[in-house]
Structure formats: structure tokens, C-alpha cells
């Protein structure tokens, strides 16, 4: 730790290694929850893009025009929440993805994904708390 913020290692979590194999269903360009890797995989312009559960804040759904909209909110500066020691909140040049919204006609699947994200997030928070309690 030479310089405090500058040399901080934001490597506490990583979704996939370089040669990782994604679940085969990424072919369908759909949102996937990969619990084994603590990640969600989002289809962005034909590419499966993973996001680690530690970057997620929450997920919400809404209905409009025959579609179900799933909004995935990420942790970012200026929201009064988040684990600032894990992420470069104080880095003046870091840009953050704050939210991504997807639409689908499959209402049930979108609700299901929302629930899975909420559940994963809850489990992570619980595990972290347990770890903290052990350390104390």
C-alpha cells in the first residue's frame, strides 16, 4: 500500500477467468443467473457480459405495453450505499454502470430472475456478516 487509494487492490471478487465456459444458454441472448460463480450474465449487443453479485444493489420489475421490464441497479457513488472499500468509489476518474434495464415478454422468467438476484444478494450479505462475526 504505497499511496492508499492509488494502489488499492480492487480484486476481492472476480466473476470468470479468461477461458471460463459460460452456461450454454447464453446462446439465447437472455439474462442468466449463475449462482456457482456468484454472477449474473447479461446479453449486451450479442455478447454475454458477467456482473458479480458484489456489484449489484437490487433488481426491480414493472409492466408496460405487454412487456415486463427488469431493472438491475448496481452500486455506484453518490447513492449513500455500498461497500466503498471494495470498489473505487473515491477514484475521481472511475465511471460506473448504475443500471441496466431489459424488457421481455416472459413475465414469469423476469420475476424469477428478480427473485434469484434478491436471494443471491441476501445470501452474500449473510455470509459476509458471518465472516465479520467470526473475526470479532
Amino acid at each position: 500500500n504505497l499511496n492508499g487509494t492509488a494502489v488499492k487492490q480492487y480484486k476481492k471478487f472476480e466473476s470468470y477467468k479468461r477461458d471460463a465456459v459460460f452456461p450454454t444458454r447464453v446462446k439465447d441472448l437472455m439474462i442468466l443467473v449463475d449462482e456457482k460463480n456468484n454472477s449474473i450474465i447479461l446479453p449486451i449487443m450479442g455478447r454475454p457480459v458477467p456482473f458479480h453479485i458484489a456489484t449489484l444493489k437490487n433488481a426491480t420489475t414493472s409492466q408496460e405495453g405487454g412487456f415486463c421490464f427488469l431493472r438491475i441497479n448496481f452500486l455506484s457513488p453518490g447513492q449513500g450505499v455500498g461497500r466503498k472499500d471494495d470498489q473505487p468509489f473515491e477514484d475521481p476518474s472511475a465511471q460506473f454502470i448504475r443500471s441496466l434495464t431489459f424488457r421481455s415478454k416472459d413475465n414469469n422468467r423476469m420475476e424469477d430472475i428478480k427473485d434469484q438476484i434478491t436471494e443471491m444478494k441476501k445470501n452474500m450479505t449473510r455470509k459476509e456478516q458471518e465472516k465479520k462475526d467470526m473475526e470479532d
Partner: peptide, 19 residues
């Protein structure tokens, strides 16, 4: 219209941009 080909279609993306 590219994203219209996906099962789940991206509609919006929000960024936090400092400064």
C-alpha cells in the same frame, strides 16, 4: 434494431460519470 433479436432486450443503460 439489433437488440430486438435478443430474448431479453436491453432498453436503457445508466452511467455514473464523475465530475
Amino acid at each position: 434494431r439489433k437488440t430486438g433479436g435478443a430474448t431479453d432486450q436491453l432498453t436503457e443503460m445508466r452511467f455514473y460519470i464523475p465530475g
